[in-house]
Nucleic acid binder design. Structure first.
Lengths: 244, 244
DNA sequence: AATCTTTGTGTCCTCGTGACACTATTAGAA
DNA sequence: TTCTAATAGTGTCACGAGGACACAAAGATT
């Protein structure tokens, strides 16, 4: 970090003074962990143990360690809580209003992440009040976490229409009906079945597995999976547009 | 900040320990200030005075003060440098890679901002190497500022198609040709004049001023301004879409 | 066999938008 | 005064994306 070089800087004293004391803050990441199950979007929350937010639902976060970058911190938090690595994450926004945290100045960087609930395995965090909550049931949360949740969900809603990230929330094999219901749950609107399928056919990023659902008291549905190869092929060509 | 309440928290000691020392970092904002002039997008840059980036072009930023929020800090920086208040700003991304700053751990939150160059008045910063640079001439910059610039410009390119923010870069009165050239400069593509105008007509957010340009050796062009009232009226109805 | 439940499919029509060329208007030169 | 140079301003056609819409197919259960 070169203190010898640092001494040459003209206004270095100002910088050093400022860097030393009161201008510093703690840095955390907070993860908005989205899952999908039972036709609704869920958020993984924990019970807050910090006054004055004791008992409220809280996002899962941690302080960023020295020598750790933000994405890495978010991935670490996710793995600690869900046991999953390589989860799809997205930085959302930085929140740093003075007074947002009872212990002082804590800047937090919000991330959303998408996980397949089927792959999620409760870790030893489960006795700390970890709980999937329906997104619409969360009205008040600890700290400014409701604001963070809202910002994250808005960004997810925007991104899901232009990037094929919805699949991260589904099992590897899914039916077209499940995919449509997922999009309806995220966006809060409903689609025409035929139009939705036509659109997907035209995008051509699904792999027809020639397998069918079993054990239902009705006609079985075909299973599909997201085809990374096909997607790579088409995504380069023009602006990928999922708009439907 | 309630230290009496704080003492009740179960894991408060862990938190306090962590908050005290090494997990803290300095926090800054960096402003990517976009202007438009002469058919190209410009960035306001300053000359870096900090080794090992001495002399390189640098974004304009400052440490966030205690009791200041991020948006406020960005606005303050902008006013200090340009003399302008109430500028359109947009948080872009937080950057915190360890090693990104020679003086130690400095998390920076990037903002882009759009200003009308005509309204810009050089402040006493002008003798500090303040300079408008063509966006395409900036290949290397101090710190990770090139990465920050790229992220900001990408976000601007996305936002400009779905939100009527381009007008922030133009004088209050402008011709349709100027508007088209601005969009072409931002997006790096060219539009058909008739199609561009048809699209704008259909969106209906411009006010026809019934004034004309003067002093040109050719047919005068009609002047328009952005009509906030019209925009408010249409923006509520459906997803505003500037896609052209 | 009849019923129930969910899957899966095709057509029409409208609207947005890409492609495309000529006239209108002014200043200035001849 | 006329001519030239330069930019402003305008309409049509054709294609394709996508919204609206209804019924047959397949399996399980009774």
């Amino acid at each position: 970090m070169g203190t010898e070089a640092v001494k040459q800087a003209k206004n270095i004293n100002i910088w050093l003074d400022q860097l030393n004391e009161e201008s510093k803050a703690a840095i955390s990441v907070d993860c908005v962990i989205f899952g999908y199950d039972d036709e609704s979007i869920k958020i993984l929350t924990i019970e807050s143990d910090m006054p004055p937010h004791l008992g409220k639902r809280s996002l899962i976060g941690d302080l960023v360690k020295k020598d750790e970058n933000l994405d890495g911190a978010a991935q670490r938090v996710l793995e600690t809580v869900t046991g999953l690595k390589g989860v799809h994450i997205q930085q959302v926004h930085a929140f740093a209003d003075p007074g947002r945290h009872p212990l002082g100045r804590v800047l937090t960087v919000a991330y959303y992440s998408l996980i397949k609930i089927e792959e999620y395995t409760l870790t030893d965090f489960k006795d700390k009040g970890l709980k999937w909550m329906d997104i619409h049931s969360l009205q008040k949360m600890a700290f400014d976490h409701k604001e963070i949740l809202d910002a994250s969900f808005s960004l997810l809603q925007r991104n899901v229409r232009t990037r094929p990230i919805g699949f991260e929330l589904l099992p590897k094999k899914f039916t077209l009906q499940e995919l449509q219901s997922l999009y309806e749950a995220i966006l809060g609107i409903s689609f025409d079945k035929r139009n939705f399928r036509r659109k997907l056919r035209s995008i051509d990023i699904l792999l027809d597995l020639d397998e069918f659902t079993e054990g239902n008291a009705h006609r079985p549905a075909k299973l599909y999976s997201f085809d990374h190869k096909k997607f790579k092929a088409v995504s380069g060509k023009k602006e990928f547009n999922f708009q439907i």
